[in-house]
Design a protein around this nucleic acid. Sequence first.
DNA 1: AAAGCATGCAAGTGGTTGGTTGCATTTTAA
DNA 2: TTAAAATGCAACCAACCACTTGCATGCTTT
Lengths: 193, 193
Amino acid sequence: MTKKTSKYDKILNTFIQLLIEGGYQSATISKIAERAEVNPSTIFRNFTDKKGLLSAVVDRHLKDLSTIFDGVSMTGNIEDDLVILSKTYQEFQVDHQEIVLIGFQAALEMPEINKAVEEIPVLFKKILGDYFSDMKKQHKIRETIDVEAATMNLLWLNFGYFLSVIRFDHPNISTSATDFYDKQIRFFAKSLV
Amino acid sequence: MTKKTSKYDKILNTFIQLLIEGGYQSATISKIAERAEVNPSTIFRNFTDKKGLLSAVVDRHLKDLSTIFDGVSMTGNIEDDLVILSKTYQEFQVDHQEIVLIGFQAALEMPEINKAVEEIPVLFKKILGDYFSDMKKQHKIRETIDVEAATMNLLWLNFGYFLSVIRFDHPNISTSATDFYDKQIRFFAKSLV
DNA sequence: AAAGCATGCAAGTGGTTGGTTGCATTTTAA
DNA sequence: TTAAAATGCAACCAACCACTTGCATGCTTT
């Protein structure tokens, strides 16, 4: 696979970086050009217009998303598995936080962004639901557990934590990643068995 | 307490409405003026500049926040109490979603917005932490429960659910408010006793 | 070496937005 | 009723931004 042009990736990466730093409106063509050491006209030649840049971000995101849980294998130990799944989800979210941020900012310019953002939790939910169903069949979690409730619970827990991490600073509501996995996720996992 | 001017509130309410509909950049002075049936110059006379509008939103928000848990009384039944607390939090969040949205959008223009946004979960955490500590003293929740973990768990669960509600549309990850309280919160509460 | 393609450069365009100002008019309060 | 305060109005400004274009230059490929 040959790269589209030599500057294409550099521009796109710079754009994403600026998105994270200041959001969509703040990611000006001239800022991108300057930081990517590229002429503004080059940006338009590669991406047509600013929406084209957004599109490219969404495309790249969807491509990455499709492989997020590839190579992740379960151990059969509930606690460990939920940590692994949560960690996989969290790392992907943080690595792709720009799509979430512009989902909050540019949903008007590009409604399909929200669809792309949604797909992350939708996929994660499917993985979790399948896992819990499986574990229930194997009697590794209690009979009385509502799989749907457990799934959504863990989903929102992860989603809430992720957004706290990327937006909040306050010490009272900050938690290190290790604490999150070792305390929160395991706390949750224990309630299932 | 006398209102500042007759148009002040109308402008501010219109601004908030537009913030929810389309975000900060989209909430143009001329849009506000048109919908509030007011002349653009009146907006500047009342709020100095656009940041002044933001400031006013933040001020109003902080004022409302200070009374959020006033008049909320506990029953002693864990499940019911956690539903009440979550409901109080959720309703406040939805009623003040604009501050969260602009926290994602205008944090650059006004860094103090994020502080204001943070204060909601910070306060909620304190309420929850106190409640759990109290219940533990009364032996109404298990000895082995880590209060901090339980608190953060419920906090992120609520935060994640709230953001899902205001941003997501996908049927797979949508849940009615009643389902959230009756299934999720009670599911969580049961794990404590 | 030649041809084609990507890029740099510079000047410019049109639209939008936040913000100002002076004056006429309406609303409010004493 | 009257004075003061709040608003409407309209013209205007400066800044910024996305985007265009024509041409020169450099790089890559064959």
